[in-house]
């Protein structure tokens, strides 16, 4: 991690994260729509998987493009999210030291 370039949130930017899951769902549904049982009697003749899949791919691409165009810049030093007692979970591991 160099000090000269600004560090962006990358894959963990919440928009990329949404984009990834919706994109995967979109691909699976599109494939189901093309090759799976279309079950047209249930949907009243519409290939629901295909259309939903394509729509999800578009939405996913939208999120990823947004994150690409206006990246979230993460400050050099981020305060560690404190152990939040309202959200019980295993305790935070101490933050690894970055080599500067």
């Amino acid at each position: 991690m160099s000090d000269t370039t600004k560090k962006t949130a990358g894959a963990f930017d919440i928009r990329n994260f949404i984009g990834m899951l919706l994109g995967l769902y979109g691909i699976i549904l599109t494939l189901m729509g093309l090759f799976g049982d279309k079950e047209l009697d249930k949907t009243g003749g519409v290939n629901a998987n295909l259309w939903t899949g394509l729509a999800l791919i578009v939405v996913s691409a939208g999120f990823m493009t947004w994150a690409r165009l206006k990246p979230t810049v993460v400050p050099e030093e981020v305060e560690r999210a404190a152990d939040d007692h309202t959200r019980p979970a295993p305790r935070n591991k101490p933050k690894p030291k970055h080599g500067h």
Binding site: I14, F17, N92
Partner: peptide, 27 residues
């Protein structure tokens, strides 16, 4: 797939994998 994403990010947050996660989760 949903569970993998949700639990994955939970574990990643606990392991301090990336500053970005902290950035989004810290208050």
């Amino acid at each position: 797939l949903y569970f993998a994403f949700v639990l994955g990010i939970g574990l990643a947050a606990r392991r301090a994998v990336s500053d970005s996660i902290d950035f989004f989760l810290s208050g």
